[in-house]
Design a binder for these strands. Structure first.
Lengths: 161, 161
DNA sequence: AATGAAATTTTCACATT
DNA sequence: AATGTGAAAATTTCATT
């Protein structure tokens, strides 16, 4: 968790635009957000320096890579020792198929999101995982259809224009 | 779902690098993947044209925006009509706090991931949702800690230096 | 696959309000 | 303290070999 940063409307407009399209040139961006070329450039620098923008990445099409399966894995454990957690965190985090991992409140202890190409590939990940650490209860839920998936976070103000 | 694309090792290296850092210049990228400036540029174009790379985006820090809560919402419904689905999909998809939404196999019908700033903000989303469509069974699970979160998909070949 | 050159874009120093 | 001006440096893009 990081500390919240003060952002005015112009900042929000910049962030909103770049969350959707990170290729925008300063010229295009400044026009889109109604700022001068330069003022826009400086705000952008500020947002990057302040780590509000944590990075820029290319997004790939899972289908093009043959990664058509999204699996949510709910994990319960009876072991709550320091070492167990360390071993679990390290092995799960190291697997590239594990794209998200959360420690949860409630009756599930951990929730994992996997991207794999097939049931067999899922099974291989599952086996690697249980070989690495003791898991009491693992249950998997498969996604049939991705109805929405965005990297864009909800931003405070309504962004017009 | 899209059709899988044929990719050789050099393509994979390019994708791997850009998934991590989308700001790499052609010069830096070509060096990282051991290709000539130009060959690299052309492959990149191909990958973009073929929509293997679907876009480039800026990633924001949720904490900096005050979005410290991740909630997974499991939804069951008794209605399985065409209209219900349409209404549900439209209202859920339109909410910026809903960053992911899947139709699931198994006993949960839909799974939603929300990014919000507080329990109160979550409750507001929940209320907007149940006001829009009838939901039989809604259960929420809150993330306590984000242990891993990446937009990088697992890629076929081992990628060395 | 490499060369090189035009066009675009980023970056920054300096002046301005 | 935030904005505008202008110009150098870096980068992308593409025609040609």
């Amino acid at each position: 968790m990081t500390t919240q940063v003060n952002l005015d409307e112009a900042d929000i407009r910049i962030l909103s635009a770049l969350q959707k399209d990170g290729t925008l040139s300063i010229a295009a961006l400044s026009e889109a957000v109604n700022l001068s070329h330069n003022s826009c450039w400086r705000r952008l620098r500020r947002l990057e320096d302040a780590k509000v923008i944590t990075g820029r990445v290319a997004l790939l099409d899972p289908g093009a890579l043959g990664l058509n399966l999204t699996v949510f894995v709910s994990i319960r454990t009876s072991e709550h020792s320091e070492e167990w957690l360390k071993a679990f965190a390290e092995s799960a985090t190291a697997m590239p198929e594990v794209v998200e991992l959360y420690r949860m409140a409630g009756d599930v202890d951990y929730l994992m999101k996997l991207k794999v190409g097939s049931i067999a590939a899922y099974d291989a990940v599952y086996k690697r995982l249980i070989a690495a650490v003791k898991l009491t209860d693992v249950s998997s839920a498969f996604a049939m259809e991705e109805m929405k998936h965005t990297t864009a976070l909800p931003l405070p103000m309504p962004q017009r224009k």
